[in-house]
Amino acid sequence: MNINKYILSHCAISKNAVYKNGQKIFEKAAANPLDFLHSTYEHFNLNYPKFYKMDGLSKLGLLASDILLAGESIIKDIRPQGIGIVLSNTNSSLDMDIKYLQSLQDFASPALFVYTLPNIVIGEVCIRNGFKGENAFFIFEDFNAAFIEQYVSHLLNNNLLQICICGWVEFLKDNYKVVLYLAGKTGGPSVKLFTKETMDSIFNNEAL
């Protein structure tokens, strides 16, 4: 069954700036990506100490999902199994892979090894919010809005999910970019439709 799907909100973090629904809401010069993510965490008073033990990819995804969901009261009315997360990137967990391999010269740390999988960011966001629905992590050369639209639409059309956080989260060395979309089934004329064209135009905003 094909029904209208909407982008209820979107959030992007890249190049030392945070955007919510297209508006820049925070910006700060930083010496490196992790410094910027820590500044963002403090600026938004996220109060989630587990944040500090995460790798860069998970920190980035967690911050973006928190900002994405802020004020989205619809989430509270949906049971945990109805909320899913479908993410993608191109370099998997390579940033942490490099760090884990370097650490092996001293000793192998399980606290680092566990982050050498890209889907851990999904697990962290699920734990943070109690979300228990569908999960998937795909690897693409570039953001593949057409596939994300197909896959997430199948989940929403078939009532496998009521709402889905989807998009792109990439963190490698000095480069990072996350663009998350909150896709749902309720909206109105003023809400953007969940289509690949809309996702692409948000993703390709040249400020990002």
């Binding site: 399980p110 851990i120 697990g123 979300f131 999960n135 998937a136 496998l160």
Partner: peptide, 19 residues
């Protein structure tokens, strides 16, 4: 086929098997 998440721990399984 179906997929879900425990929302419990990143390296340890759920204690109840509920998910």
């Amino acid at each position: 086929g179906s997929v879900n998440n425990d929302a419990n721990h990143i390296s340890g399984p759920s204690r109840t098997g509920e998910e």
